[in-house]
């Protein structure tokens, strides 16, 4: 299913990465924050919305290590951020889609306002298709369900596909194998 997901997601311009461990994923994220020039300045913040991946990680230390990395996801900070990091609940293989219970407004802000959205997801969260996803997550329990397939796009001018209108122009998907085990 991972291969199918990767093919489908890349076909809609998402970037897909895979790490066996949280440590590996974290290194990748820090590298990205560095390359994208995250700094303690307007338009250069990164916001990281609360998630299980952060369990056991010292946020204060991390923020000290990367100036500009913020865990307080307000609309003001998120709209001044270059990168938003969230953890997604499920990945749907046959459309290359990520899905999340996004009732917490921080999740919505971090995944929609910055120009880069980095989405973490457990490899064991891969599902085959939309029906299997709706078996796992129901609007009865989740007041806001977000499904994301690739970055924001438009073809409204002369049918020319252009990436990044109102939402992120890059969607970086990071699969982590042992993301959930550590939580358990």
């Amino acid at each position: 299913m991972f291969e199918q997901f990767k093919t489908r997601a890349e076909a809609v311009s998402a970037e897909v990465h895979h790490f066996p461990t949280k440590t590996g994923a974290l290194e990748f994220i820090l590298q990205l924050l560095h390359t994208e020039g995250i700094a303690d300045a307007m338009q250069s913040y990164a916001v990281w919305a609360d998630c299980r991946f952060l369990t056991g990680i010292d946020r204060k230390k991390l923020a000290e290590k990367v100036p500009g990395l913020r865990f307080d996801v307000t609309r003001e900070v998120a709209s001044e951020s270059r990168i938003g990091i969230t953890q997604m609940d499920w990945a749907i293989a046959n459309t290359g889609t990520l899905a999340q219970d996004s009732v917490q407004v921080e999740q919505r802000l971090a995944s929609s306002l910055p120009s880069i959205h980095l989405a973490l997801v457990g490899t064991d969260k891969l599902l085959a298709d939309l029906p299997s996803f709706l078996n796992k997550m129901s609007p009865r329990e989740s007041g806001s369900i977000a499904m994301i397939t690739g970055p924001s796009r438009t073809a409204d001018i002369e049918r020319v596909l252009t990436i990044g209108v109102h939402g992120p122009e890059r969607l970086i998907i990071v699969f982590v194998d042992e993301l959930e085990e550590r939580d358990g």
Partner: peptide, 20 residues
């Protein structure tokens, strides 16, 4: 509509959600 497998975003909203 556009020859896509799925549109970039699908939101399912049920009742009130928290504001910012």
């Amino acid at each position: 509509a556009t020859g896509q497998l799925l549109t970039s975003y699908v939101s399912i909203i049920t009742g009130q959600t928290p504001n910012t």
